[in-house]
Amino acid sequence: MELSPDQTIFWQNGFVTINLTLVTTWGIMLFLIISAALLTQNLKTDIHISRWQCFLEMIVTGINGQIEEVGLKNPSAYIGFIGTLFLFIGVANIGIILPGYTPPTASLSTTTALAICVLLAVPFYGIGKSGFLGYLKSYLQPTWIMLPFNIISEVSRTLALAIRLFGNIMSGGMIIAILLSIAPFIFPVVMNALGLLTGTVQAYIFSILATVYIAAAIKNSNKKEPKKVKITT
């Protein structure tokens, strides 16, 4: 029994390996891009719009609203990254409804890649907001003693992101596979439905945590040192 789609290899040439994870990812990418390109072809700016446009607007403005709620003032600057995280993970996880489909998020390589993206995005947005030194200073908050802990926190939360998503999706797949062998009729359907919910929730958790990390980085780098006030008596 294969635990990860990475193990299904279609073509390999030394380091370069084309496995099921990559192929599925490309498929999802194509699906997302073609759908987006097709649905946004005839966008209307009137009061009356098509159902598809309304659906897309709901998704995009919903993501925008979530980003704003977390505390990022200008959500349109972050929607590209955070929205794509949500949509990619969400579509990848919901895809389990298709027979014979293995989500790319069940691969530790994919979740690691996404976690690394978040790890890189945090300093990217932090530096973009308050400069390189300003961002570095955030590691010294509230005091320089916290520097190693802050670095450990950064790495550990990236690992946590990767493992959490991988664990949830992989376990879901595993449970369904096991149940199929034990009780091939009713239970796999129920677990699949539960897997849809879990997959959507995980997409939400991953993207919202990424937003929180970015927001925290921006907030910390913006934080000014409190002025020392001399009290003379």
Binding site: T21, S109, A113, L114, C117
Partner: peptide, 14 residues
């Protein structure tokens, strides 16, 4: 195991 080529490819894909 983590397939680092897949990781890099996924980062690029993303």
């Amino acid at each position: 195991d983590i397939n680092w080529f897949t990781v890099i490819a996924q980062i690029l894909n993303f």
